[in-house]
């Protein structure tokens, strides 16, 4: 295909969009709305996921040691713990440090005034590479020598993981469903445009146009409309997100909200690419039937 022909097709696509001005505008609007909903939802899911991950990363195992363990025994145990492959970090917390921390956390000096002897044992604090491995690691640690008790907030951790798993599944399903709807709507919009021009396609075929010659302007038209819709959706996503993010941060500053830059940019690019891709492919599909002349 010659360059001249491609330029010709671009002109055709543009003039066709202009000629069907009203219809094109409606199509672009509908597609933009779909993409906006999809993009917005992805951002919400991404944030929830981010928050869940942040909480997960705080999961830790506390290993309390037997009182009669020698200093060498403690060192050895520390090394054994660090040797476990799921373990990221092992921190020794002595009786005294433990009491200090407890005092700070409880903030109830009177209680401690009554205690004369430190009742706490020495302990290790274990951080994991993969928070999901917490149960497996805990049971492994349990079997080691010189250990009094292993504590990781079993129930709480289990509930957290159930929640994040559910979030993940719901997120994927909803995004898949939305994606399907978006594709269907875009396809349908384009199909209407193609149907309106089936006569033209037939005539082109009869005077000897190749399928690609006929297809290309439609592809370009679908792509241009997808591009326009994607840009429109991006605009709303971008400003919408910064607006909502500002509100949320003001209300709940402790939440690890995703920053503007990373995900939003990705989602916006994704939305534009998706719009163009679906626009182009759905025109290719819609036109197939009419090329059989």
């Amino acid at each position: 295909m010659k360059l001249r022909t491609i330029i010709h097709h671009f002109k055709e696509a543009a003039s066709s969009i202009r000629r069907n001005g009203h219809m094109s505008a409606v199509s672009v609007g509908i597609i933009a709305l779909c993409l906006l909903i999809l993009g917005g939802f992805i951002l919400v899911i991404a944030n929830l996921h981010h928050i869940a991950e942040d909480i997960e990363s705080r999961v830790e195992i506390r290993v309390f040691l037997k009182d009669d363990l020698s200093e060498r025994g403690i060192d050895q145990l520390g090394e054994e713990l660090l040797a476990l492959e799921e373990v990221k970090k092992v921190e020794f917390i002595s009786k005294e440090q433990g009491l200090e921390q407890l005092k700070q956390e409880l903030d109830e000096p009177k209680v401690f005034a009554l205690v004369e002897k430190n009742p706490l044992p020495h302990s290790f604090k274990i951080t994991l590479k993969e928070p999901q491995a917490v149960e497996a690691v805990a049971s492994k640690v349990q079997k080691l020598e010189g250990i009094e008790e292993v504590n990781y907030g079993k129930e709480w951790v289990e509930r957290l993981f159930t929640f994040t798993r559910a979030l993940w599944i719901i997120g994927v399903l909803t995004i898949a469903a939305l994606l399907t709807i978006v594709v269907l709507i875009i396809t349908n919009t384009v199909r209407l445009a193609v149907f309106a021009r089936r006569k033209e396609i037939e005539i082109m075929k009869l005077v000897g146009a190749t399928n690609w010659f006929i297809r290309l302007p439609f592809l370009l038209e679908g792509m241009l409309m997808g591009l326009a819709a994607g840009c429109l959706a991006t605009l709303f996503l971008y400003f919408g997100y910064s607006f909502v993010a500002a509100k949320v941060i003001a209300l709940a500053p402790f939440l690890p909200w995703l920053p503007m830059g990373s995900v939003v940019t990705k989602v916006c690019f994704g939305v534009v690419a998706l719009g163009m891709f679906v626009g182009a492919t759905s025109s290719a599909f819609s036109i197939r039937k009419y090329l059989q002349v």
Partner: peptide, 11 residues
Amino acid sequence: AFALEVTEASP
């Protein structure tokens, strides 16, 4: 012109 355009004739 259409019948010529599909053959990619020159302008």
